[in-house]
Amino acid sequence: MATLSIHFDPAVIARLVSASTDDTVHVTLALGGGEPPVKAAPVIPHGPLAGLMRAGLLKPDTVLTFRQRRANRSGRAVVTADGQLIVDGHPSPFPSPSKAAEAVTGNVINGWTLWQTPDGSTLDQLRQELDAS
């Protein structure tokens, strides 16, 4: 029977230990045959968030949130290196802010004006900043 051996970098272990119950931690596994790991090619963002990411206005692993008080709803998503959003409670990433917001609210909604960065800026405000530069 084959044996599966998983080795984690100490930084990964430290991140897992410090994660709260609300955090989403992404771990990528690669198959190897004992040879040194192959350096992965850099991930290039694509899709609607790519421009913000290339400009440095939005970074991978940024946590986006929203709160709709009247509807008593809130959402949390993490930006992936390729420019998608992983929404808490959903197994697959979403290609756009609006699709991610729709997954949480159940309604067609403008995710650009809904999702906020940790400093309170909306994605739409970041997009306007990009357009102004």
Rank of each mutant, 00 (worst) to 15 (best):
R70D: 12
H26V: 14
R54D: 09
D119I: 06
T80L: 10
G47E: 15
D23R: 08
T3F: 12
R69L: 01
A103Y: 11
T113V: 09
G83F: 11
Q116C: 02
W112A: 01
A77G: 14
A2F: 12
T62G: 01
N110E: 07
G106S: 07
L126R: 04
K59C: 03
G75P: 12
D61K: 12
P95E: 13
P37T: 04
T80K: 09
G75A: 07
D119A: 13
Q68K: 10
A2E: 15
A30H: 13
Q84N: 09
F8M: 14
K59Y: 05
A19P: 13
W112P: 12
P91Y: 03
L52V: 02
W112S: 01
S74M: 14
D131E: 15
V87Q: 07
T122I: 00
G34R: 04
S133N: 08
V27N: 09
T28R: 15
A101C: 06
A132Q: 13
L49H: 02
P93F: 06
D22N: 12
L130H: 03
T3H: 14
V104A: 02
V87Y: 10
I13Q: 12
R67G: 05
S98K: 04
L52W: 11
P36N: 04
S18H: 08
R73W: 05
T122G: 00
L16G: 06
T117K: 02
S92A: 14
P42M: 00
P95F: 08
V12Y: 03
G75Y: 08
R127Y: 11
P42I: 00
G83N: 07
T28V: 15
A2N: 13
T24G: 09
F66I: 03
W115D: 05
A14H: 06
P91G: 06
H46D: 15
K39Y: 05
P97F: 01
P48R: 06
V87W: 11
L57W: 06
